[in-house]
Design a protein around this nucleic acid. Sequence first.
DNA 1: TATGAATGAGATTTCATTCAT
DNA 2: AATGAATGAAATCTCATTCAT
Lengths: 185, 185, 185, 185
Amino acid sequence: MRRLLDAGIDVFARRGFHAARVDDIVKAAKTSHGTFYLYFANKEDLFQALVADVAEEMRGLADSLGPIGSDPRGRAELRAWLDRFTTLYEHYGPILRTWTEAEIDQNALGRLGTDLLGDLALAVSRRIAANGARDVDPAVASLAVVAMIERFNYFVLSGQVSADRAEMLDTLATVMHDALFTSPR
Amino acid sequence: MRRLLDAGIDVFARRGFHAARVDDIVKAAKTSHGTFYLYFANKEDLFQALVADVAEEMRGLADSLGPIGSDPRGRAELRAWLDRFTTLYEHYGPILRTWTEAEIDQNALGRLGTDLLGDLALAVSRRIAANGARDVDPAVASLAVVAMIERFNYFVLSGQVSADRAEMLDTLATVMHDALFTSPR
Amino acid sequence: MRRLLDAGIDVFARRGFHAARVDDIVKAAKTSHGTFYLYFANKEDLFQALVADVAEEMRGLADSLGPIGSDPRGRAELRAWLDRFTTLYEHYGPILRTWTEAEIDQNALGRLGTDLLGDLALAVSRRIAANGARDVDPAVASLAVVAMIERFNYFVLSGQVSADRAEMLDTLATVMHDALFTSPR
Amino acid sequence: MRRLLDAGIDVFARRGFHAARVDDIVKAAKTSHGTFYLYFANKEDLFQALVADVAEEMRGLADSLGPIGSDPRGRAELRAWLDRFTTLYEHYGPILRTWTEAEIDQNALGRLGTDLLGDLALAVSRRIAANGARDVDPAVASLAVVAMIERFNYFVLSGQVSADRAEMLDTLATVMHDALFTSPR
DNA sequence: TATGAATGAGATTTCATTCAT
DNA sequence: AATGAATGAAATCTCATTCAT
């Protein structure tokens, strides 16, 4: 069952939800079709189990974003947080993205995704809001920041852009830290 | 054929590449399977045609991002550009995202996506670079910005976040304009 | 489609509903799985179509049981009716019986069967009732008679008893005719 | 093992032979798959064991049909015998019918069924034959009567007709008693 | 050009049976 | 004796593609 979950992450990552065949997952887990259906009602059921895992991890991550200072030390803490995000994303990112695949959006999974996004944004939002007026709504701005983090991670980890992980983290940390403690000239 | 292309955008958007059935497309286009294969070699062929359209439009958009001034007028121009991006994204976004679906990444389509991303980032990069030193690489930072634009659009248009289009555009314009003309305190 | 219906009768007859494989039906109809699912949603759907056919034929048969005289001519007419029943039963009997298979009873099909049985019994009942007092309820007695007809046909046609068709018809005609025009000594 | 036999009757009754899953039987018996195969070689083996039980009971019942008088007392004895049949049928009827499911007919079980039917018919036949001339063969007529008894029981017990048990027994007793002691007008 | 019935390879799912504990 | 997780052969069902009209 653990093997099936891991195989699921692996195969969904490589193929996406619809192109992933139960046969692939079963082979990757070195088990049989029968065993698969012993633990999961169907492909979507396994997927939901994975999503539940991601959700839990992500929520924990959101909670772990504490107060950030305006000094370089604050920037370093922010970078460390982004590093944890990326580590998680390396493992669960494909599930995160697969689950925003069209058609799956509709149901409970979609709502879970929305909630999750909201949690992350809220964590960021609290930091932005704590740092004085900006002529944008912190709640909205934080969503933009979360959007940037998620997609940039995807671009880098999927090899679509050539930046390496360190560069990415530096850039994100800087842009975010600036966003928190910079005011327009 | 025009009807098939439009139906393709519609169905790929709702279902993603793998879950989209030729039957759905054909029904949406009010034509027959036979006709589909008269114009396209197979499902991927139609998809490629759509991607080519997106690519052309996106390249045009990238080219249209001219010099941006540091004044409010510059911000307004930037917002207008983002508005054009969003309009395009409303139509072609699903194709843009579908094509980053795993498995399709591998081939020519994937490379096309990478190029496109690069084009957009380059356009943004030129603006950032023009505005003096920052301790991040403009090429990398611009990718982060493009990532933010794309994903925020997705979040908003897919209804995953409750911000409306105007709020989104304001926020993106502000964050980008700040990024171009702000320096750390 | 006609071929699939005929193949269905054939295969359901030989194997019963659950043991009949779609593959058998498809092979018997010299067509493909794809074609099967083009016309029928699933195995039960084909079965329902067959049942609808049986029901229609049986209802027609029930309607055709006219007034029966007490003379030998009446007995001959009764025998002719039974002959028509048996002819129908040779073709559709297996469907008739399969559909009383457990589990299928529950739903709409079950009700259809009950109705059909009622129609046949009603036709017989009218004849019995028309022929004076008996210390049994004609409605119930007629059901017993229908039960006899159906099951005796099954026993004979399935080879479980060695009587031939003519003997069976003679016996049923006599027993029924007696039932209509005999009073206790 | 007793529990498995009872569970078998129950599940075969509700689902028929092919649709009955070993899992259902095992669950109904509150035991495990392993235990099932400890006592029975396979699903058919359990079924055969049940059939053997039915056969024994039915044979005993056939033997118990003694001489029937033409007086009301004879009719009461006949009704009592039918009552015993019905009691048996309530318990074993589903097995009786399941085993006439197509496909099972072929083998040893089929022959057993034929023999059993013959035994019952023979018992009835002896009664009919003892009561003078009729222009039908008693052996055949008795089969018709047995057919009626079996199927009417099924109709009533399965709820396909609304008659209650008492009505059914009265009707069958009357019709059979008449058949034994009535001559055409 | 246009159609849509037909196909069949390949996917999902079920379930009788085995076997290590 | 008893268990129940694991198996895989065999069933059901889907859908991209073809082809006769």
